[in-house]
Amino acid sequence: MISLLNKRLMLMFTVIMVGGALVALVLTSFTGALVYFHTPTEAVAKTKELVAKKIRIGGMVQTGSLVRESGTLKIRFLVTDSTTHIPVRYEGMLPDLFREGQGVVVEGTWQSPQEFVATTILAKHSEDYVPVDMSEQGIAKSKESLLKSLK
């Protein structure tokens, strides 16, 4: 005869096992799908299989690469993870935090192996919060954090 205590222990055991199985499942199977963006290096390595597919590339807007076409909302810039640079074209509104040397996630397609055309641009904020009068330290720190997160 199973005592009441044993029954409760069995129930708890089952619940914990099911929970553990769920975690294991998430960690092993969904890892690929849970990644929100590719790094520029990955995106270039997989250019062939990703061509014509809508993808997201995350990195840093290369300092000095941003070119605005005057009179339009068209821009061109390089997105980089410090090893690979990808030329990106975009036309439209930009988020407040979009600027050179800061994080960005571009969503769009490879037009050719040399050019990525973005349909959406999202700014990626680093985990650093710094007051205005310490801006220089802030810029350096957030660059460092961002490149670290792309490793």
């Binding site: 929970g19 553990g20 998430v26 990644v35 929100y36 995350g58």
Partner: peptide, 29 residues
Amino acid sequence: AILAIIGAVDLPIIHYSVVWWRTLHQPPS
């Protein structure tokens, strides 16, 4: 109570999501 205990798996997933996967959300400050 049983559903609550099973659902607790979401807690480590939320906490470590920004470390385990690349996300738009920033890592912990």
